[in-house]
């Protein structure tokens, strides 16, 4: 449970301390890639809670989604259509769904624990 959080904090610290910055014209791509990565991360967590976690699916999904989102943005920029909105929409909806599922799973677990406590 704590290991992924530790990894996240470690990565964040590295990112802050390293002082990298992306040029302004590419910040769009980075934002969309961050959204894709966040979606995959939350998806992986939900899968873990539902006991359907698959490592290959998770890791390929992580990189594939990032690349796909960046590609969509790139295409959109060159076609003059805001295609990145498609990615924002898709990932946004999925994020909300996944978080809702996680919340329900937690609620169910909490209710079960209370029930058990009252019973004992």
């Amino acid at each position: 449970m704590w290991l992924p959080l530790l990894g996240l904090l470690l990565g964040f610290a590295i990112g802050v301390l390293a002082g990298w910055e992306v040029p302004d014209e590419y910040s769009h791509y980075l934002s969309i890639a961050i959204l894709a990565a966040f979606d995959t991360l939350i998806g992986g967590w939900r899968a873990h809670l539902q006991r359907t976690y698959d490592e290959t699916v998770f890791i390929t999904g992580f990189f594939f989604n990032i690349v796909l989102a960046a590609t969509l943005t790139f295409l959109g920029v060159h076609l003059g259509v805001d295609l990145y909105l498609a990615a924002v929409f898709a990932f946004g909806v999925r994020l909300f769904q996944n978080i809702a599922i996680i919340r329900r799973l937690w609620l169910a677990e909490w209710a079960k624990r209370r029930y058990n406590r009252e019973k004992s």
Binding site: L3, P4, L8, G15, D24, I34, F58
Partner: peptide, 18 residues
């Protein structure tokens, strides 16, 4: 999972800095 989370952390930090 932790490794992927770390990559996400780096991206987030760079994004915020940008």
């Amino acid at each position: 999972f932790a490794g992927v989370a770390a990559i996400f952390g780096v991206m987030l930090a760079v994004g915020l800095r940008t």
